[in-house]
């Protein structure tokens, strides 16, 4: 492979542009505020990425298959509330927390999958409907769904630095946190699943051409169940990461990340029409989004500008992709 084909391949990938953006941005920010380039800030951004990152993996999966899921944030809210309130009463371990939230998420995802595979209707519409049902039921049953105290083991998990890099004298350590580690683990596992398992490849095939997949003998039904259940499960897991980090249960917060997650996945190069997208790209999408949000804080720009920036990022990145797709 010569240089020009390499270059062509590189420039045809969203990852290439995102890395360029991240590097350029880091250099500029480094000049403006050296704090930006510190380890502390890097791990801070990584930590903040975790919840969104894990949810984004689920959404990515759905998008690769050519579907859409806007119910994951409602699923996360339900899984989070139920899990924490059960564990608050009965106690448990971190493992229980993840398992339980994952199973609840998976079951709710199963609801999506069942309706979708039985009635081939727009996935956006169906998940919009189920999202209303899940979230509405939660708030109907427990109108003030805030929980201010969470089990100690979750709080500890949130504080745990798995891979310390720098320790300060005041006892503060900087390094890879368990939360960030969990996200990276999920992403690694899912990368392997998507690349090296048949079901993972079937997800790409389904998104590439539903008809061809059907003709090739791929079970559309099975693949869809896999995709939507897993997306629900990941939303459940992500919700526990969120609780461990912010230490109280606020379903509104989790519910409202919906658009940010979708934005990050699209930014990461996944196409709504299905068939393309990578975990690494999605990670970069999430990272870029948080890096920019974070640098706004460091630059002293009020957080009121957050939405403007996120909106502009979405518009610019999709406009850019749209223009790149047009034949020259």
């Amino acid at each position: 492979m010569n240089v020009s084909t390499l270059l062509r391949k590189a420039t045809s990938r969203q990852e290439f542009y995102l890395i360029s953006v991240i590097i350029t941005f880091s250099v500029i920010m480094g000049f403006i505020n050296p704090a930006f380039l510190s380890f502390e800030n890097f791990f801070d951004v990584l930590n903040n990425c975790a919840t969104l990152g894990v949810m984004a993996v689920g959404v990515l999966l759905v998008m690769i298959s050519g579907g859409m899921d806007v119910s994951f944030s409602a699923i996360a809210a339900v899984a989070m509330y139920v899990t924490v309130s059960v564990l608050n009463v009965h106690g448990g371990t971190v493992f229980y927390a993840f398992a339980m939230a994952g199973i609840i998420g998976g079951l709710l995802g199963l609801v999506n999958a069942t309706i979708l595979s039985y009635f081939q209707i727009s996935a956006l519409i169906i998940t919009l409907a189920t999202s209303n049902v899940f979230y509405g039921l939660l708030l109907q049953l427990v109108p003030r769904a805030h929980i201010t105290s969470i089990p100690k083991f979750l709080a500890d998990f949130g504080n745990w630095i798995v891979l310390p890099i720098i320790s300060f004298e005041d006892g503060k350590t900087i390094g890879l946190s368990a939360i960030a580690f969990a996200m990276i683990l999920v992403m690694l596992i899912m990368s392997i699943v998507l690349r090296y398992t048949s079901i993972g490849r079937n997800v790409y095939a389904l998104g590439g051409s539903r008809e061809a997949a059907e003709r090739a003998g791929i079970s559309i039904w099975k693949t869809q169940f896999f995709v939507y259940c897993l997306a629900g499960m990941l939303a459940g897991i992500a919700s526990i990461l969120n609780v461990s980090m912010i230490r109280y249960v606020n379903p509104f917060n989790v519910y409202n990340v919906l658009m940010d997650v979708i934005a990050a996945v699209v930014l990461g190069g996944a196409k709504l029409s299905g068939g393309s997208g990578t975990i690494f790209g999605t990670f970069l999408g999430v990272f870029t989004l948080y890096m920019i949000k974070n640098s706004l804080i460091l630059m002293g720009i009020p957080s009121t500008w957050d939405s403007v920036i996120v909106g502009l990022i979405i518009i610019v990145s999709v406009a850019f992709t749209a223009s790149r797709k047009k034949p020259a």
């Binding site: 009121t304 957050d306 939405s307 403007v308 909106g311 502009l312 979405i314 518009i315 999709v318």
Partner: peptide, 16 residues
Amino acid sequence: LATLGTMKLFEGLATV
């Protein structure tokens, strides 16, 4: 995607 972006943008402008 376009209206998702403008949703955030309009919301943001209003906040600002």
